[in-house]
Amino acid sequence: MQRVNMIMAESPGLITICLLGYLLSAECTVFLDHENANKILNRPKRYNSGKLEEFVQGNLERECMEEKCSFEEAREVFENTERTTEFWKQYVDGDQCESNPCLNGGSCKDDINSYECWCPFGFEGKNCELDVTCNIKNGRCEQFCKNSADNKVVCSCTEGYRLAENQKSCEPAVPFPCGRVSVSQTSKLTRAETVFPDVDYVNSTEAETILDNITQSTQSFNDFTRVVGGEDAKPGQFPWQVVLNGKVDAFCGGSIVNEKWIVTAAHCVETGVKITVVAGEHNIEETEHTEQKRNVIRIIPHHNYNAAINKYNHDIALLELDEPLVLNSYVTPICIADKEYTNIFLKFGSGYVSGWGRVFHKGRSALVLQYLRVPLVDRATCLRSTKFTIYNNMFCAGFHEGGRDSCQGDSGGPHVTEVEGTSFLTGIISWGEECAMKGKYGIYTKVSRYVNWIKEKTKLT
């Protein structure tokens, strides 16, 4: 034993070699072989497995989906700052455009905790909710729209109204504003409101030439003092309507412009014939205590009207009353817009006519005020429907199939267009061939041609 100890002390290297040989010859039971080890760690190889990531292109799944990435790591994937920024906006807080917040056709661009709407022409605001041009839906104005110097929408209202708090709607500024039905039992019968379409306001006024200088022999019209197929109006439903009495009662109609003036057809009036105007009328054979009678003290036909040349060209006249009318729910003026808007309103496509005229061709006159909704007829169809001249200051309205029309005794009465609950004068009943005849239409004086003249002559002093 002493000898062994001496050998170990003198030859430590020998001992180490012996131990190493023993270990190498022993069977290893701690580690699995290569094949079995792979069965336990069965993990798919990654895209760049075996390579240094710093030297390969980034992978979106590896960089940002398996674990949260930084902007720089995302930049490695896209290799483009702009594309990385677009991805980053949604990656950080989701897609803010998912709810489609942009209105009126706006395009949404996502941002971090926010979004941006790219608005089409005519709109602005956070969600493109603000109209900035009158060309689109009248700028959301209830009545009139004008573009300011910086191309912003400025709404306005006709006389007797003021802008509401929203700067879009119009509200009454006087007790009985024009064009409004205020009798409670008839307010439910107000005709369907007309909503502004998209309009090209630059070209809204037709490029028409008034044929002022045409000389033409007097034409022989049949029954051209021209509501057939209409309905009984309720008291106060058309408070701007008046009836004219002269040699015979209810020979023509008219509309209240203001307390002192009536507008009617020029062919209705004769110099030297006494005319009485009755406002607030409903049943011409009954006294309903809503009527107001006034005498006409002055007749002003349009300066281009000449019955000797043509009885229905420039067929418009103004009547001055001896005493002002007292405005109330049964006696209310009709609204008159400017030339541009009167023309736009007419193009809405349908209007209402009213009167006490004959209820059928050569038949009896109506006792109760009649009204009828009539569609506008395109000019080409209008011209083809008659052998008589249709001037540019006239328009056609009615039904091709016949059966409904204005008729004798309705002449001078109103053709009105309702705009968001307020009625505007767009025409004056003038003439036609018979009444409600198939293929024939009622012919009306186009008020847009005469609004400046009306307003100039009827100013209240």
Rank of each mutant, 00 (worst) to 15 (best):
V359M: 15
D405T: 15
H303E: 09
T29F: 09
N393D: 09
I275Y: 07
R140G: 09
V277I: 12
T209G: 14
P375R: 13
N328Q: 02
G363S: 12
Y22M: 14
V154D: 09
P414W: 04
K311H: 06
T158I: 10
N304L: 15
T209F: 09
S25H: 06
I316W: 01
K68N: 10
W261S: 00
G13K: 13
S184L: 14
V153D: 04
V416E: 02
D93P: 10
Q370H: 11
G427P: 00
L41W: 04
A192P: 06
E231H: 13
L319A: 05
T225C: 05
A279V: 04
E98Q: 11
I262Y: 00
P44M: 11
T85D: 11
H400C: 06
E456R: 08
E456C: 06
L376S: 04
G179R: 00
K446D: 09
M8F: 13
T194K: 08
L346A: 04
A164P: 02
R364P: 07
V447N: 00
K51M: 07
N38Q: 14
V359H: 14
V202S: 12
V377P: 02
S114D: 14
V199H: 11
C69W: 00
N452T: 13
T422Y: 04
Y22H: 09
C407W: 12
D378G: 07
E418C: 06
I428N: 01
G254F: 01
I112N: 12
S411P: 10
S217H: 08
Y391D: 15
E98K: 12
N393H: 09
I262P: 00
F144W: 03
T209K: 09
G230H: 10
T16P: 09
G280C: 02
K446E: 06
E165K: 12
M8W: 12
A173Y: 10
G427A: 02
K45F: 01
Q167R: 09
L103C: 07
K168G: 05
G351C: 04
D200F: 11
G236K: 07
T426Y: 00
S99K: 11
P239Q: 01
P375E: 05
C145N: 01
Y441F: 09
V92C: 07
R226I: 11
E79Q: 15
F424H: 02
S169E: 09
A265H: 02
R358F: 07
D33F: 06
R226M: 12
P301Y: 09
F345L: 08
S255F: 01
M65D: 03
G402H: 07
P12L: 14
N138Y: 07
K247S: 13
L60Q: 03
T342Y: 02
T276F: 05
H267A: 04
N166P: 02
G413R: 04
E10H: 11
S107D: 12
P120I: 09
L318T: 01
M65A: 07
I316R: 00
I429T: 13
